[in-house]
Design a protein around this nucleic acid. Sequence first.
DNA 1: GGGCAGGTCTAAG
DNA 2: CTTAGACCTGCC
Length: 277
Amino acid sequence: MVKSVTFARPQNFDLDLIFDCGQSFRFVKSSDNSYSGIAYGRAVDFIQEDDRITIVGADNCDFENIWKRYLALDLDYSALRGEILSSRPDDEVLKSAMEYGSGIRLLRQEKWETLCSFIISQNNNIPRIRSLVEALSCRYGDRIEAYSVGEFYSFPSAERVAEIGIDKLRELKVGFRAPYIHDAATKVASGEIDLEALDDLSTDELLSALMSIKGVGLKVASCVALFAYGRLDCFPIDVWVKRVLDKYYPDGFDHTALPNTAGLVQQYLFYYERFRQ
DNA sequence: GGGCAGGTCTAAG
DNA sequence: CTTAGACCTGCC
């Protein structure tokens, strides 16, 4: 008997956008249009129908404790979008981007995995980021039983990655990022950085703490704060966002005026510029 | 073969 | 404080 949980599909919730907008690297679309992958050490399939979402491999307990938070079901995206529109009533570009990316939802992913994944993302391309994260998991993660076909491995803990060492990391072809990953793993495994405790810090303090890791600059730290810590006041600026800002907002774009929604705006603009047509 | 990809570090003005 | 170069790797 396969356990599963079904809930009503919220507004602004589309698996294709959620898993294809660049925030997550470990979920893959199956032939039956479901998304399979691992998060928080659990293998699940997300299935989308018009009016409902099913999580195969989850029970009610996991749903309450993990997936509600992961999928940000506690946030009212209609309200967030309303707030954006009222803050920028004359912004037609943003309006188009919001329409185009209306199904986007910011996940709250695992902190360590997100940190490591976005260290890997620097000066890299998305297919290769995916394959490197996958290689790291297959080689050093734990095999997870799943209902869907294929093999699934959890993302290795910081302790595990710390003991791997830089040379073994290089064998995975992460290149110049190997010492960066190692530094992050060492700091987290030793307790010098307590990723959970960072939840209690202000966003500025959180970013500073993350940036004390070698190879973590403002962009990577902002991605971690946004995609793992749910800090919607973060506005990661990568080449694509810089491009869209230069193109449509030559006089500047003040994201600090959007304290509750800046990160969501960033995703709309990023997705609009990066994945349109 | 040279350029490029969700950046960051380092050295130099 | 701002700014070039360099940087693993793989695919075009």
